[in-house]
């Protein structure tokens, strides 16, 4: 298997995807934007088609268009949630429909060309592709690990992060573009329709058993690499599309960890010294009125304040 040159390229691409997709997805999930990768994938489809139409590299064109789409999504998010979901939905559908229409306009493009981008393929990863993917993956890794503390702070509590003097908007846009780049890194092997799954599922699987961000990051990347390599290998031997194989494997890992997490948590609860302690402190009073309910005066003051 390893003697086939296309397989070496596919496995290398799978490794890079396994690292980058969960590394970026972690921040999106932290910000409760798990679905954003999906939207970028849809927009990237227009980029791929444009690449065919203009006879340039579909990967670079997809990177460009997906980045632009991600920046627009981020600006919509920043401006408030009132109609943000509708605007995002429009972007999703526009990207998908635009991609399908443009590919029909291009002379040598067909729906068949798009299919390999939609579902991924290990046969189509060219030498030029792997160079592009390598450069982009290095960029994504440098940002997601190098700026870990900054991105964590922004995704954890944006309002607080602003008061620590962080350039919040710049970091948000950087994260959006990084997510877009990751989508195009992953699309050759996993496919645009399932890219988001590899960003989200390893993180979801890992966080069932972790308590800290650092541990979640390490475990999610570990799971990502494992399922990417295994899924790509399986698709070589069984002639399966690699994207769906990788994603189903990730789901299986999610389920296994979920099953293991229950007894693990129970044992931790039993062995942890302070296991019984929180039960006494977890009593949260609903409001200040109850807190001072014993005294007549304060209670009346609170009532006036309502």
């Amino acid at each position: 298997m390893l003697n086939a040159a296309f397989m070496q390229r596919a496995l290398l691409a799978a490794l890079l995807i396994g690292v980058t997709a969960p590394a970026v997805g972690l921040y999106l999930v932290q910000r409760r934007q798990a679905i954003m990768g999906d939207g970028i994938g849809h927009v990237a489809l227009t980029g791929v088609s444009l690449g065919f139409l203009l006879n340039t590299s579909p990967v670079w064109m997809a990177t460009l268009v997906a980045s632009a789409g991600a920046v627009v999504m981020e600006l919509i998010r920043e401006r408030g949630r009132t109609r943000g979901d509708i605007a995002l939905a429009m972007l999703f559908y526009g990207g998908m429909a635009g991609g399908a229409l443009i590919i029909k306009l291009s002379p040598d493009g067909s729906m068949a060309n798009l299919t390999s981008y939609l579902w991924g393929s290990i046969l189509t990863v060219s030498t030029a592709d792997i160079a592009t993917v390598g450069v982009l993956a290095a960029l994504v890794t440098a940002i997601t690990f190098g700026l870990r503390r900054q991105l964590f702070a922004v995704c954890q509590d944006e309002e607080f992060a602003r008061v620590t003097g962080l350039p919040v908007r710049l970091l948000n846009l950087l994260l959006a573009v990084t997510a877009a780049v990751t989508v195009t890194v992953a699309m050759r092997v996993v496919g645009l329709l399932l890219v988001s799954a590899l960003m989200v599922v390893p993180v979801a699987a890992a966080q069932q058993v972790t308590r800290s961000f650092a541990a979640t990051q390490a475990l999610a990347v570990g799971i990502g690499v494992a399922v990417s390599l295994t899924g790509t290998t399986a698709s070589y031997y069984q002639d399966l599309p690699p994207g769906p194989a990788i994603v189903v494997l990730a789901m299986v890992v999610f389920g296994l960890i979920g099953v293991l997490a229950v007894p693990l948590a129970r044992r931790r609860h039993r062995t942890g010294g302070g296991g019984a302690e929180p039960a006494a402190c977890d009593l949260v009073l609903p409001g200040p009125r109850e807190d001072t309910g014993s005294g007549q005066g304060p209670a009346r003051g609170a009532a006036l304040a309502e």
């Binding site: 503390r149 607080f160 003097g165 962080l166």
Partner: peptide, 21 residues
């Protein structure tokens, strides 16, 4: 937030204004 974070990790973000990059 959407991902587990330890108490120490959350409090550490308050030091960003001191150590920056």
């Amino acid at each position: 937030s959407g991902v587990p974070a330890s108490v120490r990790e959350v409090v550490s973000t308050g030091r960003l204004s001191r150590h920056g990059l």
